[in-house]
């Protein structure tokens, strides 16, 4: 049986890990390669790095972190932040990333999804969608949560899957950093609308939240940041608890 995945999500700014709340109020959470090594030792299934201040000036720093991570950890990792062109995708893959997350450009130039899928395979194209609640609907925001696209998250994810995305990273901005649980309703709507894996993100605060993302949210994987950064939870512990809850996870 395919195991449910636990994926630590590491935000990068100027070569350091940071974590905020609803995409603001960032706190330093340590050195990325060290964090990656710790999560590797703790049996994480995969890693996600998102460079939240991606610019041409700090690109070299990002490639350096990717290359060092690839030398030290032997599990897959996804890298995103400022990915605009097929060349950006290629450069990240060559630097050692296994998958590339496309966020703003997935909305502004959707052809990037299909171009990247054709050239490098769907398996490495992760479309990252950030949303805020608007009543029962979810509105997609780009540019690190700053621009309201007015687009519906379910529609955007469905379209991304049609264009060849291999996975969806679905982040609730409202829940981000609050540790109050994933937005299960929107996660389920998206997971039921596409036939590609969906990674629930934003709001993990306990192992119960993770279990709910799988059971009620129909997610294939969960992204976790604050829970691992700011509590005594680690992949080993949440996997043990998930196993007791009947979720099929890989032994840490």
């Amino acid at each position: 049986m395919l195991k449910r995945r636990i994926i630590p999500k590491l935000l990068l700014r100027n070569g350091r890990n940071v974590k905020g709340r609803q995409f603001v109020d960032l706190r330093d959470t340590g050195a990325p390669v060290t964090n990656a090594r710790i999560y590797d030792a703790q049996g994480a299934d995969e890693l996600i790095f998102l460079d939240i201040e991606a610019s041409d000036a700090n690109r070299g720093l990002l490639y350096d972190i990717i290359a060092k991570t690839a030398e030290e950890v032997f599990m897959p990792f996804c890298v995103g932040g400022g990915v605009r062109t097929v060349e950006d995708v290629r450069a990240l893959l060559l630097a050692g990333a296994d998958k590339v997350a496309i966020n703003t450009a997935a909305i502004e130039t959707p052809s990037l999804i299909s171009d990247a899928a054709r050239l490098f395979g769907s398996q490495c194209v992760v479309v990252s969608v950030d949303f805020r609640r608007d009543g029962s609907r979810a509105r997609v925001f780009t540019h690190g949560g700053r621009c309201d696209t007015v687009l519906d998250a379910v529609d955007v994810c469905r379209r991304a899957a049609e264009l060849g995305a291999g996975e969806i990273l679905l982040t609730s901005i409202d829940r981000d950093g609050t540790m109050s649980g994933y937005d299960l309703e929107i996660t389920r709507q998206v997971a039921d609308a596409v036939r590609i894996p969906v990674i629930a993100s934003g709001g993990a605060g306990s192992s119960e939240h993770l279990a709910a993302a799988f059971l009620d949210g129909h997610a294939s994987a969960v992204a976790v940041a604050s829970l691992f950064h700011f509590s005594d939870h680690c992949p080993i512990k949440v996997k043990a608890q998930l196993k007791i809850a009947g979720i099929d996870v890989r032994a840490a």
């Binding site: 195991k3 995945r5 291999g166 996975e167 590609i196 894996p197 294939s220």
Partner: peptide
């Protein structure tokens, strides 16, 4: 009812 790609850890 299969999600494709098959992504993740499997036995």
């Amino acid at each position: 009812d299969l999600r494709v790609p098959h992504v993740g850890w499997n036995e």
